[in-house]
Computed example of a mutant assay.
Amino acid sequence: MSITLTFAVPPFGLAPAPSFSLTPVDGADGLFTLVGDGARLFLLDAAVHLPAYAPELSDEQADVLGLTDPADAMLLVVANPGASGTTVNLLAPVVVNARTAVGAQLILEGQDLPLRAELAAA
């Protein structure tokens, strides 16, 4: 089942579109595609694949998403599959307010997180 998300600013690499579709990939727990205007990104649910990943959002970032309760935040990371393995972007996660379906790709300032972290095989 797909979820329609609204982004005030489209995620990096996707063209502006009125809405984006977040769809689970069948048979791959915590893996999603985010599609908007002909482009697609792969996203991983950090709670499933990176349980120790706990970035901090600024008050301004939480306000943009209308987040008042951390439990409402769905934390996703962009996955980049490659010939030698998959990397994930930990510096700029996609955060979705699960209550309102409003999302944003946020750059985490002041946090020492990599743009391309190797994803360990499960």
Rank of each mutant, 00 (worst) to 15 (best):
A8K: 13
G27F: 11
F7Y: 03
D29P: 02
L119T: 01
V25D: 04
V64A: 05
I3N: 00
P16R: 14
G38L: 08
D29R: 14
Q105N: 14
A52S: 12
P51Q: 03
G103A: 14
M74T: 13
D63F: 04
L50T: 06
A8H: 14
A15F: 02
N80L: 14
V94M: 01
V25P: 03
A121P: 00
Q111N: 10
L119C: 11
L67N: 01
S58P: 06
T33N: 07
E109L: 15
P16W: 11
V78N: 00
G66V: 11
S21G: 00
D29H: 08
M1G: 13
F7P: 01
D112A: 13
G82A: 14
A8T: 10
A62N: 06
Q61R: 09
V48P: 01
L41R: 12
R40C: 14
L67F: 01
S2T: 13
Q111E: 14
E109T: 09
F7Q: 03
F12A: 09
S58D: 09
A39R: 15
A120L: 15
L34R: 05
T68C: 02
P70D: 08
A28M: 15
V78I: 13
F32V: 10
G103S: 00
L50G: 06
P93G: 08
V94W: 00
L108N: 09
N89D: 09
L65Y: 10
